[in-house]
């Protein structure tokens, strides 16, 4: 008999039809046996989901993680047999200024060198006026400070107002 590992995974999913199914597919396709799915819908745009499943080995877990990353599914926490296996934080912030005109691609690329920009929302009243851009960035806990200083540096260079979260 093969003893399987118990995994608890916390996800932050977009509140749109089909997103839960899209998030669970990588688990089942890599032999995971889903035990429970709990979700809580708060006031935020994303739904927090806690999935508990069993898998054969570490390799399967890594494949599931990679597949989720590819699908841009936000994984905020993973526990293996109750112990934190890997922990990521999602940082949200708003940039105000000429965000698009100051080469938004470059801004994203520089942030992606430290974390992963997983969500972008833009409000641009007119090309002349300042735009506001909300970004969510997935980052390893150990790289938080580096991410903060990268974002601050970019904002200073491009004269953007940074509104970061207190979370």
């Amino acid at each position: 008999m093969v003893i399987k590992m118990k995994i608890d995974m916390q996800l932050a999913l977009k509140d749109v039809p089909g997103s839960l199914l899209r998030a669970l597919e990588p688990i089942s396709s890599h032999g995971g046996n889903i035990v429970s799915v709990l979700h809580s819908r708060g006031e935020k745009e994303r739904v927090e989901v806690k999935v508990t499943f069993k898998i054969a080995d570490q390799e399967s877990l890594d494949l599931i993680r990679k597949e989720m990353e590819k699908r841009r599914i936000q994984v905020s926490n993973i526990s293996v047999e109750g112990k934190r296996y890997y922990s990521k934080k999602i940082l949200s912030f708003i940039l105000v200024g000429h965000v698009i005109d100051t080469d938004v691609r470059d801004t994203i690329d520089r942030i992606n060198e430290v974390g992963l920009v997983s969500d972008i929302d833009v409000v641009m009243p007119s090309p002349e006026q300042k735009s506001s851009v909300m970004m969510s960035v997935e980052v390893d806990n150990g790289k938080l400070e580096r991410l903060n200083s990268t974002v601050e540096k970019v904002c200073k260079e491009k004269d953007l107002l940074l509104i970061s979260s207190i979370e």
Partner: peptide, 11 residues
Amino acid sequence: EAIELARKHGY
């Protein structure tokens, strides 16, 4: 617009 964006995302 920044306030509107924040509100939309629950902040």
